[in-house]
Structure formats: C-alpha cells, structure tokens
C-alpha cells in the first residue's frame, strides 16, 4: 500500500516537473530570451540573493537570541569557564567576518548584475591588497591560537598532587567507576583477570587494590581537583561530560586521563536552573557499537565534607566479593580479611 502511494507520488512529481519544464521552454522561445546573453531571470536571481541575505540573516539572529539558553549548556568546571570564554571570543571574531563577507558576497551579485551598457573593470591583481588580507588574518589567528595554547597547556598539565582519582573504564556498553579507597591509590589491573565478578580486571595481588571500591554514580567534591583515569577494555569509547567541558577517549591498552575542578554542586546547579531533576551526565562520544548512545553515567558533585563522609561509607569491592581474594598469598589474604572485617 505504502509502496503504491509512493509510486503515485513520484509519478505525480515527475509529471509536474515535466509540465513546468515544457511550459517555461515554450515561453522563453516565444520571448526570444534564450538568445540573449542574460535573460530577465538574471535580475531575479540577483535580487534573490538579497532576499536570501535578509531572510536568513534575520532568521539566524532571531533563533540565536531566542534559543540562547537552550543551546548553551551551563558550565560547571574551572577550565570550562576558560574554554567557553575562548569559544565566545572566537564566535565574535568569526561571526563578524561571517556577516561582513556574506553581505559582500550577496550584495555584489545584485549591484553588479549584468548590464549590456557596462563593462566589467579589468582588475587582475593588487599585491598590496593580497598582503593585507594575508597579514590581517594571520595576526587575528595568532591571537586566537595563543589564547587557545595557554588554556590547552593548563588543562593538559599534570594533575595537582592532591587530586582525587576516579577510574572510568569503558566497555560495551557502559562505564565502570572505580575509586582508590582510603589509601588514595588505585590498585593495578590486568585485562586477563576480567571476569563476571571482576569487571575491571583488578589485580588483587596488589595490596592497593584491596580497599578499592566501585560506585554506580561518579561522586566528586566541589572545588577540589579531580582526576579521571580513563581506560577501555574492548573498543574505543570517549568520556564526555558536557557540563564539565570534558572529553577524553578511552583507549584499550593506553590509559588516558583528564583532570578538572568542579565549581558547582549538583544541588547548586539545580537551584540555579530551577530544575529539581537536573543531573550532570557522562556520555560516550566515540562510536563503539550498538549501545553507543546509551552509555550513561551520572556525576554527582557534592560539598567536600559530604564527599569525605560518602567515601568513608563505601565498602571495598572485596567485601561483597570475597571469592576474589581466596587464592592470595597468606599475608595478602590476611590484609584482605582485615579490610573485610573492618567494613562488616
């Protein structure tokens, strides 16, 4: 049925095109306009450029203003404030060039449309002009680049020593979130140890691993540096926390990292936006298969005191999965048992 309707539609459309075509060729033959260098359509086309300029210019400005709060995401990290600033400076510079060049590009066709009585001016080159419009963009770009370079260097500098570490491991299709526990050191891992109960392949022969714990939510403190240790256990993924202006690929076999300082707690952001449901999110931005669009994690930014309290309440992974430490050497096993009993 659908197929039939589509076929009818296509036939109708084609016959419509056909009729318009025949009629207008006949008209143009009658008017003899197919012999002229530029027919009357020339002015129509020239005029349409102006119409386009006004209409689309207006539409762009109107929409950009009206929707501003919708398409600009609130920012919640220190470096994000900087990169947003760069973004808007670049927007101002390029927006200006965009508008000027388009005004010229669409006004010239109208102004200089074909006229038999006029000849075009023979103006093959002007080195001074070429130099000007090589040098001026060069200077503008240099300024933009230098701003970008400084911000980029700050963002990618080594994380401050006291930063809180969180491991994010991408897999098809989700993120495994691991905290180093009270010792502040993430235990080492080996992908060959991965199993149903040990999703991150934690190596429990490393005693730093014994107090590591996992969490369904990424909880981080406001105003203190946080370092995401990012890795993947299967294909490429990419950690994207849009409100933190944070993105970094998760690469199997090559750990990556990204550190930042959150500036607003989830509660503060809720109040600011007047939205009680608001949450910070993590999405995946590197194509990774069927569930690529569903790798969601929530980030909860809390006050530092609350963060410490939360940390203390967490149970090491081995507490609920004691089978993982069964085959350890006696002294490690003892340590593990102490850890478990402390949290019972």
């Amino acid at each position: 049925m659908y197929g039939f309707l589509i076929a009818v539609g296509v036939v109708l459309l084609l016959s419509l095109i056909w009729m318009v075509y025949r009629i207008q060729t006949l008209v143009s033959v009658v008017k003899g306009s197919d012999k002229k260098i530029a027919s009357s359509s020339n002015s129509v086309n020239a005029f349409l450029f102006i119409v386009f300029l006004v209409l689309f210019g207006g539409l762009m400005v109107w929409y950009s203003v009206k929707e501003f709060d919708n398409y600009t995401l609130p920012v919640a990290s220190e470096h994000g404030i900087e990169t947003d600033k760069l973004f808007w400076v670049t927007m101002a510079v390029t927006g200006f060039i965009f508008i000027i060049t388009h005004i010229l590009l669409f006004i010239f066709p109208y102004k200089y449309r074909y006229d038999e009585k006029r000849t075009a001016s023979f103006y093959p080159d002007n080195n001074k002009l070429e130099v000007i419009w090589t040098v001026v963009p060069a200077i503008v770009l240099t300024v933009l680049v230098i701003g970008g370079y400084q911000t980029w260097s700050d963002i990618t500098a080594p994380a401050p020593e006291k930063s809180h570490q969180v491991e994010l491991m991408g897999y098809q299709f989700g993120w495994e979130v691991r905290y180093p526990g009270m010792d502040g050191v993430l235990g080492s891992h080996d992908y060959r140890l991965t199993s149903g109960t040990n999703a991150s392949g934690i190596d429990f022969t490393d005693k730093n691993a014994l107090d590591d714990f996992t969490s369904p939510v990424v909880v981080i403190p406001k105003g203190e540096p946080v370092e995401f240790k990012i890795r993947s256990r299967d294909v490429l993924h990419s950690v994207f926390a849009p409100h933190m202006r944070l993105k970094m690929d998760a690469v199997p076999g090559m750990p990556t990292r990204f550190w930042f300082v959150p500036t607003k707690t989830t509660a503060e952001m809720r109040q600011e936006l007047g939205n009680d449901e608001f949450v910070y999110e993590i999405a995946c931005t590197e194509i990774c298969g069927r569930g690529h669009n569903a790798m969601r994690r929530v980030i909860e930014v809390v006050e530092p005191a609350e963060y410490r309290k939360w940390m203390a309440e967490q149970k090491p992974y081995i507490v609920n999965n004691p089978s993982l430490v069964e085959n350890l050497t006696p002294d490690l096993k003892e340590l593990a048992e102490i850890t478990i009993s402390e949290h019972k």
């Binding site: 260098i37 020339n42 086309n45 010239f108 066709p109 200089y112 449309r113 074909y114 103006y123």
Partner: peptide, 11 residues
Amino acid sequence: LTTLWRGNLIF
C-alpha cells in the same frame, strides 16, 4: 569576492 566586485555578472 574581489573578482565579483565591479564585474558584469551573468547568473
């Protein structure tokens, strides 16, 4: 842009 400028444009 400069090529268009003061041309005799045929569309």
